[in-house]
């Protein structure tokens, strides 16, 4: 006789993926807002400082939000690692010849193929980013608490740092694009009539975030914004 007992949702691949999608969506929202907020660097030192202070004037909300983001990030990463480990166990052998990839658009295909790669890289980047601009503990990069503008500009005047941010954000873009499309599939919210719109929306949001995050270090590194 076959034991056909259902499993708890989080013991199934679909359940895990759904949580990855939902946590991803939260992080997605954060990244979007964060990027738009950062645009204020173009309004000058005072504007972005005021923005920082307004956020810091609600410490409970700020730390609450940080806690939620941290939990989301950890969950997102842990479950992804778990899923990848299961996948490796499910398929232990590769084929002798790798097949030509399925007919998909170049961007989508690339995003899909780099998803596994971009994840760990992004994780390293996020840690660096927090160390650099939130905690200010990166050796060699001077940091003054509260002086967002100076910290940012001084950091990005170092071409290595700017380059790292640019590359990481391009990867983030691919990650967001693929994730943005995929989460509709994963959560079962996909419908053929909306597919094109979903893809366009994911592309648009990703483009805004990526452009913003790339423009800031680029302009600073190019010396267009100075201290």
């Amino acid at each position: 006789m076959l034991k056909a007992e259902p499993l708890p949702l989080l013991a199934t691949g679909i359940g895990k993926k759904a949580v990855v999608a939902i946590t991803g969506l939260v992080l997605y929202g954060f990244v979007f807002v964060h990027a738009l907020g950062n645009l204020q660097v173009f309004l000058g030192r005072e504007a972005i400082k005021a923005y920082r202070e307004s956020l810091h004037s609600f410490p409970k909300a700020l730390w609450g939000a940080r806690a939620v983001l941290l939990v989301c990030l950890l969950t997102h990463v842990t479950l992804t690692i778990d899923i990848a480990a299961k996948a490796r166990a499910a398929r232990t052998t590769r084929y002798k010849v790798s097949a030509p990839i399925a007919e998909q658009g170049i961007l989508q295909r690339y995003a899909r193929k780099t998803m596994v790669l971009s994840g760990p890289i992004l994780l390293v980047y996020i840690m660096f980013h927090l160390a650099h601009l939130t905690a200010g503990v990166v050796p060699g990069l001077p940091f003054k608490a509260g002086e967002v503008y100076d910290n940012l500009v001084r950091g990005f005047q170092n071409p290595m740092v700017a380059g790292l941010y640019i590359v990481a954000n391009l990867l983030l873009g691919l990650h967001l694009y693929h994730g943005g499309v995929a989460l509709f599939q994963t959560l079962g919210l996909r419908h053929p009539q909306w597919d094109a719109h979903t893809r366009h929306a994911a592309f648009l949001v990703t483009a805004v975030v990526t452009a913003t995050n790339v423009i800031i270090p680029t302009t600073i590194a190019a010396g267009l914004i100075r201290q």
Partner: peptide, 9 residues
């Protein structure tokens, strides 16, 4: 079996 990670192969 593994979980779907939306490769669509």
């Amino acid at each position: 079996f593994g979980a779907c990670s939306n490769h669509y192969l």
